[in-house]
Design a protein around this nucleic acid. Sequence first.
DNA 1: ATAGTCACTTTCCTCTAGGTACCTACTATA
DNA 2: TATAGTAGGTACCTAGAGGAAAGTGACTAT
Lengths: 128, 128
Amino acid sequence: MGVETTRAASAATVPELACPISAVVDIVFSRWTTPILWTLHTHGRQRFVELERRIGTITPKVLTQRLRQLERDGLVVRTYHPEVPPRVEYEISELGRSLAPLFAHLADWSAAHLDEVEQARQAYDSES
Amino acid sequence: MGVETTRAASAATVPELACPISAVVDIVFSRWTTPILWTLHTHGRQRFVELERRIGTITPKVLTQRLRQLERDGLVVRTYHPEVPPRVEYEISELGRSLAPLFAHLADWSAAHLDEVEQARQAYDSES
DNA sequence: ATAGTCACTTTCCTCTAGGTACCTACTATA
DNA sequence: TATAGTAGGTACCTAGAGGAAAGTGACTAT
């Protein structure tokens, strides 16, 4: 054990064998990606600082990391304008927009069932 | 700092202000929950060791933690039979089953667009 | 001359999720 | 006698994610 580093790592650490949607979950629902995609979706093309201010609690380092990852996955398009001061704009790609019905589906489930989750938690916490 | 532990933590760390689906994502797509729910969904009610073997790479400690969390959130029902040796069965709750179309939607997106993500990654890695 | 803007980058540090290993009590089987 | 199976609990440890804060470079405004 300890030999599987590069490509065998997927079999050792990623639980995709038991779940065909794990790959998508890693891409779309890793930390900070849904607030970024949601902000980009609702406010359209915008600059780095606008994203930073709208999300509010994210640090620039993490925002850069997540945007790079989203760009690499083809969900976000980055446009660099070599001006002074530099201007960079981010927008959702075509591929990213194809997630919109999925997010709407999630929002629907949230509206319909989130209070049931809250009730289940209160019941669980109060009994045992 | 360090004072916000119980309820102020949600405002300090959770990015829900910018994204109305963050709460659902935390509940449904936190680590190991999709393999567990998927296995429970496809193989029906089953015991702890069956889940452990089917998922394969999960440790019993983490499996216990995740199952407790899913039970608390009302997505999974745990049934304890006080026999010797003890027998415990897990199954998806009604609330958990309401996630099925969402998971199907995700599987559809995966089948339709996962290769585009892979292509985007290769393009990104080869150029810069 | 100083401060401010933008889009990051870098360094340092903390926190915790998760892994390893061992433990429980009881029974059936070899 | 010893081992395996059952569903976990507990203690310890490490790797890595993520936060805080300062720096960078080129230019502008005061």
